[in-house]
Design a protein around this nucleic acid. Structure first.
Lengths: 120, 120
DNA sequence: TCGTTCGTATAGTAGACACTAAACACTCGA
DNA sequence: TCGAGTGTTTAGTGTCTACTATACGAACGA
């Protein structure tokens, strides 16, 4: 679960190779040294900081939250949302843990509905 | 918002003084040096690591998630939940951001209801 | 006034985090 | 065969995190 092809490094390498971008070029695109990127891609170094992970996701049109999760991180933006309502969000996350994507989708819609009602 | 009486440090000091516990004793209770605790309480040092924050919350019967939030942290447990379903949770958190405690409570109940149905 | 307890100031540290530069070995087209 | 490109190895570095030990000055009780 760390050196196979679903690891962060392997994923980045696959993403990069899909478009035949060289290591040096991609490193420049995302703002890091080729050396570092090489090590990161082989999981020899831990995943980089949030901004680099985002840059990688952006460069390849991937979902940033997902790539961040693979990097073992939670975006600062989401952390901030939780910090604003820690008890409520903590309770919710524990309650929602394990629900399927469809069920989560229902809750998202419910949340949006509640929010819209506020503007009434 | 950092040196007033709602800061992490000031909160810990208040919590400690409420029961007239000395700095040295409390430091020992939560497993840190008195020196460090003193600085933390005056916000001269940043809040400690998650386990210490939890120890403080436990020692004074406070909500750990809330104290962690005040410490600018999100518990590793919650981060893990998000990492398991990053897209869904990220979407939800953004959608739910700004809802009131009551509205969040409704979503928690909905989540619990959905989960119960699964066992059917 | 001595001993104890209080909080504080000073000065440091081990270890992790997030990287970088330079040099290297290999391959491949011209 | 050479030079231009590929990825990799070696050997670091500066900054931050999360603390600690020792020593200090003030107050208080016996």
């Amino acid at each position: 679960m760390s050196n196979d092809d679903s690891s962060f490094g392997a994923t980045v390498r696959r993403l990069r190779n899909e478009k035949d971008i060289g290591l040096r070029k991609f490193a420049q695109m995302v703002g890091m040294s080729p050396t570092y990127l090489s090590k990161v891609e082989r999981d020899e170094f831990a995943p980089p900081a949030e901004d680099k992970v985002r840059a990688i996701a952006d460069a390849r049109g991937q979902d940033a939250d997902e790539l961040l999760a693979l990097a073992g991180r939670v975006s600062a933006e989401l952390a901030d949302i939780i910090k604003r309502h820690p008890r409520e969000m903590a309770t919710f996350l524990r309650a929602a843990n394990g629900l399927s994507a469809e069920e989560m989708q229902r809750l998202v819609e419910e949340a949006r509905r509640l929010k819209k009602e506020e503007g009434t």
